[in-house]
């Protein structure tokens, strides 16, 4: 099984990196960009085939390490 964990900043948390990327896109001439928020993606290769167990383990991983839940949200996708 494979899993993809996406970690993004919570709404309301200042994202100066996203703002800098937004400014750079605009300076390159990309119009119509309202706002940019940046984040992280983790691709994990998992042993076993129990999706529910994998989801529980991934949630635990996010809470304990992959995300800082003071400032970040996380989303988990699992595929075979």
């Amino acid at each position: 099984m494979k899993a993809r964990v996406t970690v993004t900043l919570k709404n309301g948390v200042l994202d100066p990196q996203g703002q800098a990327i937004e400014g750079s896109l605009k300076s390159l001439g990309f119009s119509g960009v309202g706002a940019v928020r940046q984040g992280k993606v983790f691709d994990l290769a998992l042993e076993g085939s129990d999706e529910a167990a994998a989801r529980a383990a991934l949630t635990n991983m996010c809470e304990k390490l992959l995300a800082n839940t003071v400032i970040e949200n996380y989303a988990i996708e699992i595929s075979n």
Partner: peptide, 16 residues
């Protein structure tokens, strides 16, 4: 802070 001994978070400087 990351260990939970103090509250909050330390983020990238506003100036980057």
């Amino acid at each position: 802070i990351e260990a939970g001994l103090l509250p909050g978070a330390l983020m990238r400087n506003k100036s980057l």
